[in-house]
Design a protein around this nucleic acid. Structure first.
Lengths: 211, 211
DNA sequence: TCTCCTGTTGATCACACGATCAACAATGCT
DNA sequence: AGCATTGTTGATCGTGTGATCAACAGGAGA
C-alpha cells in the first residue's frame, strides 16, 4: 500500500536541484527522445512535483533546447578528443568515418534527427541545432585543412567539403537508425567516397584499423 | 457576419469524400508536416466535421502513414521517370546527384526526416518508411548495375553502394533543410564522392548539364 | 410524394500538455 | 526557541489531441 511513500522531496539547493533536472532531462531524451521531455515526465524522474520543473525552467522549449545542446556537445567533444590522439590527417579522417559504424551512438543520432524537425516549431532549439552543426563542421574542416597542409589531401574549399562529409555521415547514421541491416561495408564505401572528395590516394583512409 | 455560412457540407459519394480527405491530408503534410495531420485540421480543410474524417479512416496513424507513402512514392516515380530519359548510367547518376541541388523538393525532405522519428511511435508509418526507402534504393541500384554492365562503373556490391548513395543524398538534403547556406558546389562535391564509390572516371558524372 | 438508406454532424469523453500560483513546510539565521 | 526565507507542492486553467455515437438530413428509388 506504500510503494513510494516519500511524501515530500527533501529540500535541496537551487544549483543541486537544477542539476538533477537537467540530468533527468538528459536521460529521458536519450531513452525516449526529445518529445518525451514533458513537465510531468521530468518531474516524475526527479521525484518531484511538476510545478518545480517549471519553476527551474523559463519554459519547456528552453529545456528541450539546452538538453539537446548538452547531449550533442558532449559527443562532439568526445570524438574530437579521440581525433587528437591520431597521428596524421588521414588517420583522423579514417577515424571519423569509422565512427559511422559505431552503433553505440545511435541514440544521439535519433536526437539529431528529432531536433531537425522539432526546430521547426522551437526557435531556441533551431538555434542550438545550427550552433552544434557548426561545431561539428569545424571538427571536419580542421582535419581537412591539416591534410591540405600535409599534402595528404588536395581540397580547394575545405569548408564546403567539411559540410559535405558531415552531411553524408549524418545521412548514413540516420539511415542506420531506420534500416540497420542490408549494408555491410559502410566504412569502406564511405572511406572511398571521402577519398574521392578530398583527393586522397585510394585506400589511404584506413577504415578498419585491425586490417 | 457570414464569412463561411455553409451550414452543412453537401452529400458526396464515399469514394469522392475519401479522395478529398486524402488530398487534404497531402496538402497539409506538405505545408506543415506530418505532425499537423490532426482530425480537426484535416476536417477544417475539407470543410467538414471532424467526426467525418475519423469515419473514413481507421485511425490517425493510418492516415499519417498513407499520406507519407503517397507523397514520397510520387516523388520516387517522378525522379525515376526523369532518369529513364537519360541515355547512359553516368548521365543518370549525374541527374540523381543534381536532384540534390533542387531545393524545390525540400518539403518532401522535411517529411522524410519527420517520418524517421515519428515512425518510432507509429508502427504503420515505420513500415511505410522502410518500404519507401527500399523503393528508392532500388532506383539507385538499377543505375549502378547498368553502369557495371556498361563498364562505366566498377562496383562489387551494387546493393550496398546504392544504400550508401541514398544515405548520402538524404543526409545532404536534410542538412539543406536546416542550413541552406554555406555550401556552394554541393553537386560537384557529391559527384566526385560518388565517382570514388562506383569507380567511375573523375568528372564522368557531369554535375551541371550547362557546362 | 413518400420513404428509407446512409452520409454527416457536433457534442462529448478521457487524456495529456504547458503554465500559473496560493498555500505549505523545511531550513538556516537571529 | 522563534522567525523569516525560500524551496516545494498540487490543484487548477485553457488548450489540444483521438475517438465515439446518437441524432440529423440529403437524395435516390418506390
Amino acid at each position: 500500500m506504500s510503494s513510494t511513500p516519500q511524501k515530500r522531496a527533501l529540500r535541496k539547493s537551487p544549483a543541486e536541484r537544477a542539476a538533477e533536472i537537467t540530468e533527468a532531462a538528459r536521460e529521458i531524451a536519450l531513452e525516449a527522445g526529445l518529445t518525451a521531455l514533458t513537465l510531468r515526465n521530468v518531474a516524475a524522474r526527479v521525484g518531484v512535483a511538476s510545478g518545480l520543473v517549471a519553476h527551474y525552467q523559463p519554459n519547456m522549449d528552453a529545456l528541450v533546447s539546452s538538453t539537446f545542446a548538452t547531449i550533442v556537445a558532449a559527443e562532439t567533444q568526445e570524438v574530437a578528443g579521440l581525433l587528437s590522439q591520431r597521428p596524421g590527417p588521414s588517420e583522423r579522417l579514417g577515424l571519423l568515418v569509422d565512427t559511422l559504424l559505431d552503433n553505440s551512438r545511435l541514440d544521439v543520432t535519433a536526437i539529431w534527427v528529432e531536433a531537425w524537425t522539432l526546430g521547426r516549431r522551437n526557435e531556441a532549439l533551431a538555434a542550438s541545432v545550427r550552433e552544434q552543426m557548426d561545431a561539428w563542421q569545424k571538427v571536419f574542416q580542421g582535419v581537412v585543412e591539416d591534410g591540405n597542409a600535409t599534402g595528404a589531401f588536395n581540397v580547394s574549399d575545405a569548408a564546403a567539403v567539411a559540410w559535405q562529409i558531415l552531411g553524408m555521415v549524418d545521412g548514413l547514421n540516420a539511415q542506420a537508425l531506420v534500416r540497420w541491416d542490408g549494408v555491410n561495408d559502410r566504412g569502406t564505401h564511405l572511406a572511398r567516397a571521402v577519398e574521392g572528395m578530398v583527393g586522397a590516394a585510394p585506400g589511404s583512409l584506413a577504415s578498419k584499423p585491425g586490417a
